[in-house]
């Protein structure tokens, strides 16, 4: 297990420099004008980033209003009986609800929980697993669809949120199975 962990860490460190090196050298080998192609491709970076702005503003403002009003606390309290039913610890609930909404928010909650309950406690491991195994669904939807000006996202949100819900249950199951 620890060897596997070592390999995974090394791969993640080498990935970016290795990828750049391989792409450029292979490109040159295939007689691509490397520098020209990099500059040409990079031009798009600005337009895409600027295109995202209104989508990201709308999404972050909506979530910020919801968080600042304290509506989150009511939501957590309201869901309490439901989560008790499936054995999801109440202490980890803020994390589960914040994770799809806000990356920085869930990071803050995670640090808070790890400091309070200890990173190696059941709550701590569960929260860390939740943090690691899912993405900030609302942010991803805003950015990815914003880049191509898609306004009607159809089933993207229900799919993402239901998958997040599955993540919570799976995290609870695996953390209990493997450690506690």
């Amino acid at each position: 297990m620890s060897i596997l962990r070592e390999i995974v860490t090394i791969i993640s460190v080498l990935a970016i420099p290795g990828l750049i090196l391989f792409f450029l050298v292979y490109g040159q080998f295939k007689r691509v004008r490397v520098y020209e192609a990099v500059v040409e491709g990079g031009k798009e970076g600005f337009t895409i980033a600027v295109k995202i702005i209104p989508y990201l503003v709308a999404m972050l403002v909506g979530i910020a209003i919801f968080r600042a009003s304290g509506a989150m606390d009511f939501l957590i309290a309201g869901l309490q009986p439901l989560t008790e039913l499936i054995g999801f610890p109440a202490e980890a609930m803020p994390m589960a609800l914040m994770r799809p909404l806000s990356g920085s928010g869930s990071l803050g909650i995670m640090s808070e929980i790890l400091k309070t309950y200890g990173p190696d406690s059941f709550i701590g491991v569960l929260t860390s697993t939740l943090m690691g195994s899912t993405e900030t669904t609302f942010y991803v939807i805003a950015v990815y669809f914003g880049a191509v000006n898609v306004r009607n996202t159809r089933h993207a949100l229900p799919t993402g949120l239901l998958a997040d819900f599955v993540s919570f249950l799976a995290a609870l199951f695996f953390v209990k199975l493997l450690f506690f």
Binding site: L19, I20, F23, L24, Y26, G27, F29, K30, V32, V34, A37, V38, V39, E40, G41, G42, K43, E44, G45, F46, I48, A49
Partner: peptide, 15 residues
């Protein structure tokens, strides 16, 4: 970051 990776991506595409 976008400019960097889209540039590298372009090389990969042409190659």
């Amino acid at each position: 970051i976008m400019a960097l990776w889209l540039g590298v991506m372009k090389v990969a595409e042409e190659a």
